[in-house]
């Protein structure tokens, strides 16, 4: 069985390597992607959206529909893990050894976590807010922000985190992020534009259409940020406690 698997993997690897030859060279200005699509974005994104980092412009505006469903996929992953793993009662512990007791002299760990976590959250907000001008945005900021909560729950205990942040709250906010994203898109419809065409927001925000697109992007990035943050916390809490939500790592 192992030999068959090895043969299949090697064959697939060879096919992929051979197929790589047909790809255009990396950074080739004559390749189809660089001559049509990328060129349009590079030339027009600044005047159409007033966002200097056109990776963000492509992600959140030109390809906003994709990103909305990426956020939905993250949300689905979170609730799937929750559905599969979460159990309310304690199961019979058969082969799981008892964990070493956490009552120890881990004051250095706890103090360090208390110092680092606010920095991480501040940096996450910076990454979110500065995504229009530099690499970053909702996804990266959300992951960093979620990681700061995970850090706290590793240094202290999962119980400590969940006593301050109820599961119900976590799932409420993960849904809220997707709702903000889709809601901003839907309001565009109500204002007479296309779905996720933020320029119709200019009627509400009293700014030019180009600026409205920039603000709309920030709005949906905030939605992505909220969903990713809370789904990361939920994933960690489910996976690290085996669905019992009692103790983490």
């Amino acid at each position: 069985m192992k030999i068959i698997a090895l043969l299949v993997s090697v064959a697939l690897g060879v096919i992929l390597l051979v197929a790589t030859n047909d790809l255009p060279e990396w950074g080739d200005p004559q390749s189809p992607a660089s001559t049509h699509l990328s060129r349009y974005y590079i030339e027009n994104s600044m005047e159409q959206t007033s966002v200097p980092n056109f990776v963000t412009a492509v992600l959140a505006d030109y390809r906003g529909y994709d990103t909305m469903f990426e956020t939905a996929v993250i949300f689905c992953a979170g609730i799937t893990v929750l559905t599969i793993l979460r159990r309310s009662h304690r199961r019979k512990k058969k082969d799981v050894q008892p964990r070493p007791c956490r009552e120890g002299q881990d004051i250095i760990l706890k103090s360090a976590a208390r110092l680092i976590a606010p920095m991480m959250q501040l940096f996450a907000l910076y990454v979110l807010a500065h995504g229009h001008h530099s690499p970053g945005g909702g996804f990266q900021g959300g992951v960093i922000s979620g990681a700061s909560f995970i850090l706290l729950s590793i240094a202290y205990d999962l119980e400590m985190l969940l006593s301050r942040l109820k599961e119900r709250t976590i799932m409420f906010f993960s849904g809220l992020g997707v709702l903000i994203y889709a809601g901003i898109g839907a309001i565009c419809l109500l204002l007479g534009g296309n779905f996720l065409n933020y320029s119709s927001w200019s009627k509400i925000l009293q700014v030019s259409e180009v600026e409205a697109r920039s603000h709309g992007m920030l709005g949906i990035e905030i939605g992505v940020f909220i969903t990713v943050t809370f789904i990361m916390i939920s994933l960690y809490a489910d996976l690290a406690s085996g669905g019992e939500m009692d103790e983490g790592l």
């Binding site: 990454v127 996804f139 990266q140 992951v143 990681a147 790592l249």
Partner: peptide, 19 residues
Amino acid sequence: AFTEAAVGAGVSTILFLGT
């Protein structure tokens, strides 16, 4: 690269460890 550092090297390692 930023996403890879945050998601790949950061959070997914923690999730794998927890699992």
